[in-house]
């Protein structure tokens, strides 16, 4: 089974791109599945169900979405193997800019959209920096120049990634992404593979449910800011 990890900011077009790419793969119905990792709510299952794509949704709830991903992705692979899938796609949303749900040796795709602002590629962090392929969506609604500048800003952050332009609505470009998916290696398990980037550091008291504000309530990993202390 081939495993593809897809991540990106909310509403950047991940589901749209995944659906179009699955169509472009042209594999027998039921042989490509998706596991959606999200934090609180997601309606993506409706769109996968509509296309008769086997899918599961996992909610992180009060757990950091990145930690939740890594503790469940192995289970996702087992589910895919049991279902006899030939391709399993994980879609991660609700991540912070410190996150990157990518595993060494597993094709990692970051989806970002042209509408999110030209400096966004510089702000996303590891999710973009450690991706093998960066998919840029919504190019149909911005100017050519903005597409070029956006792609350039992506390369400044991740000079080695392949940048692909995919239209999530018409599927234009999806077929190139499908080619990359076809070329990725087959796996049976993720056990003992390594994450590409460390997870956000835990644990502070707020991770475990503390809600009160004040130094006396803070424990564990705390990063304190230094403010300018000059008086006006």
């Amino acid at each position: 089974m081939k495993l593809i990890t897809v991540a990106g900011p909310p509403s950047s077009g991940k589901t749209s791109v995944i659906l179009k790419t699955i169509a472009a793969l042209g594999l027998p119905p039921g042989s490509v599945g998706v596991v959606k990792f999200d934090s609180l709510t997601s309606f993506d299952h409706q769109r996968y169900d509509e296309q008769k794509i086997p899918n599961q949704t996992a909610f992180a709830g009060k757990i950091c979405p990145d930690h939740h991903f890594v503790s469940n992705v192995e289970g996702a692979v087992e589910w895919g193997m049991k279902k006899g899938l030939s391709v399993l796609v994980t879609e991660s949303a609700g991540l912070c800019n410190r996150c990157s749900p990518y595993v060494n040796g597993i094709l990692s795709v970051c989806v970002i959209d042209n509408l999110s602002g030209i400096n966004t590629p510089r702000k996303i962090g590891p999710m973009l920096k450690y991706a093998d392929i960066v998919v840029v969506t919504k190019g149909d609604v911005v100017s050519q120049a903005e597409r070029e500048v956006f792609a350039f800003n992506i390369r400044e952050v991740n000079a080695s990634a392949t940048v692909l332009f995919v239209n999530g609505i018409t599927g234009q470009g999806a077929f190139m992404l499908a080619r990359h998916w076809q070329d990725t290696l087959d796996i049976r398990t993720l056990r003992d593979r390594k994450l590409r980037f460390t997870m956000p550091a835990a644990i502070c008291s707020y991770c475990t449910g503390e809600t009160l504000i004040g130094e006396m309530y803070q424990m564990g990993m705390v990063k304190r800011m230094e403010f300018d202390d000059e008086s006006p």
Binding site: N114, L115, G117, I118, G139, D140, V141, V142, S143, Q144, E146, R147, V149, A151, T162, V163, L164, F165
Partner: peptide, 16 residues
């Protein structure tokens, strides 16, 4: 990376 082809259409706008 789309460098061969530039595209222009009615729906495109500036967002910057």
């Amino acid at each position: 990376g789309g460098k061969l082809v530039a595209q222009l259409s009615q729906n495109m706008n500036f967002v910057m």
